[in-house]
């Protein structure tokens, strides 16, 4: 097996996550798909770190994880706040600015 297969897997997972963000309506599932995209990027970082033989890629992947954790915390708090005022976790229902 070629080590580049990890890169193909990463591209595939990223694409699946992007489709999920567009297609799903539940805000929590949309968030999980964003997480999937971040994870796919991390896999690419780790693979490139191995290909290039230095640990910089792993450090960047580590930073990505921290930022992803921040994003999840704030995002889920926003979802809870929206749910509290609108009784819905659907991304289609939060369209107050459109009208």
């Amino acid at each position: 097996m070629d080590a580049a297969n990890y890169l193909y897997l990463s591209a595939l997972l990223f694409t699946i996550g992007a489709v999920g963000v567009v297609v799903r309506r539940n805000a929590i599932v949309v968030f999980m798909c964003v997480e999937l995209m971040l994870n796919a990027a991390n896999l690419a970082f780790v693979t490139f770190s191995r290909i290039n033989g230095d640990l910089n890629g792993q450090v960047v992947a580590f930073f990505t994880m921290v930022v992803a954790a921040c994003e999840v915390v704030v995002g889920l708090a926003i979802i809870v706040t929206i749910y509290r005022s609108r009784r819905s976790a659907s991304v289609d229902d939060a369209s107050l600015l459109k009208r």
């Binding site: 929590i28 994880m65 992803a68 889920l76």
Partner: peptide
């Protein structure tokens, strides 16, 4: 892929903490 630290962090932080946060919400 020889990223032992990241693998463990992935399980502890993502599967352990982030996914549990998702399930809580």
């Amino acid at each position: 892929q020889d990223a032992l630290f990241l693998g463990i962090v992935q399980i502890v932080v993502y599967t352990g903490a982030v996914m549990m946060l998702f399930l809580f919400i």
